[in-house]
């Protein structure tokens, strides 16, 4: 979470969320996204029943066509802002919600669709749609925090459901959620996974990526894709310069940085640094 997103007053106030006479009202909103993070909420299964005991889920279109108007105690927001209409809608959600939690790579960094930020969206529209005239879109895909104050950002593509339970639990109790900012490497080591970068010469973003997935990809002999975004104080430049020193071309490394969290500042700056003239269009 960015320091600027901390709201001590609200955190203190949250101590009351669980003790209030009525269960807190929780809403789930979707913006530009694949719905995968909302599915993670449904994947909670056993925990979902306990969550439903402790909060009223009053707006969750992925799960139910019944929905209630605000205000809401907690809003979980999936997706990025890619249209003017969504830019207005997120402001309304913010106004109606005491706590706004951005969930997933789209909501926290703009998602994979933020690749358009390097290209010409009119050209993309012409390539993809038969009648591009009907498409009204912003030229960028941006994180929720670019538009409204976000109280907590839960990373991941998709989010880890156990971390989501941790966030909801922390809100109910008025605690700070515990979502470590350390690298994926520590998770590999705790589970005994041998480093795929050192032993198999695979490019792996694990050393600069925030923990959260439990280090799944390296355990299947694949390098980390950076799904949980940059770790705390990531040193991306050292990592990419090491790869370049080992014979990889800068142009081959840009797509690694521009992935599910392409527009997360640390990854964006590093991709731009490696090859400022990289043509995002040529991969399409």
């Amino acid at each position: 979470m960015n320091d600027s997103n901390k709201h001590p007053d609200q955190a203190t106030e949250a101590a009351g969320l669980k003790s209030r006479p009525q269960a807190p009202r929780l809403a789930v909103f979707k913006f530009a996204s694949c719905d995968g993070c909302q599915l993670q909420i449904l994947s909670c299964e056993d925990e979902l029943l306990t969550i439903a005991d402790q909060v009223q889920i009053v707006h969750f279109l992925e799960a139910s066509s019944h929905f209630e108007e605000g205000p809401y105690d907690v809003a979980l927001v999936e997706g990025s802002i890619t249209t003017a209409a969504d830019r207005d809608r997120i402001r309304q959600v913010r106004q109606q919600s005491r706590f706004l939690i951005a969930i997933g790579a789209c909501a926290t960094s703009g998602g994979i669709q933020a690749l358009k930020n390097w290209g010409d969206h009119h050209e993309f529209s012409r390539c993809v749609y038969a009648e591009p005239a009907y498409i009204r879109t912003l030229s960028t895909s941006t994180a929720i925090s670019e538009h409204v104050t976000v109280d907590f950002e839960l990373r991941g593509c998709p989010i880890n459901r156990l971390q989501l339970v941790e966030v909801i639990q922390a809100l109910l109790r008025g605690q700070s959620p515990r979502t470590p900012r350390h690298s994926v490497c520590i998770d590999c080591k705790r589970r005994g996974t041998v480093c795929v970068a050192v032993a198999q010469d695979k490019v792996c973003l694990g050393p600069v990526t925030q923990s959260g997935c439990g280090a799944i990809c390296p355990s299947f002999d694949r390098g980390c894709y950076g799904c949980f975004g940059p770790a705390g104080q990531p040193n991306c430049e050292s990592l990419t310069e090491h790869w370049i020193g080992c014979g990889r071309s800068p142009v081959s490394l840009v797509p690694l940085m521009r992935n599910f969290n392409a527009d997360a500042p640390a990854f964006r700056e590093e991709g731009d640094r490696i090859d400022p003239d990289y043509d995002q269009g040529h991969v399409l």
Partner: peptide, 13 residues
């Protein structure tokens, strides 16, 4: 420090 990733690998191994 310019080279170190602070990734914890040295301490873990």
């Amino acid at each position: 420090a310019a080279r170190c990733l602070s990734c914890t690998n040295c301490t873990m191994v």
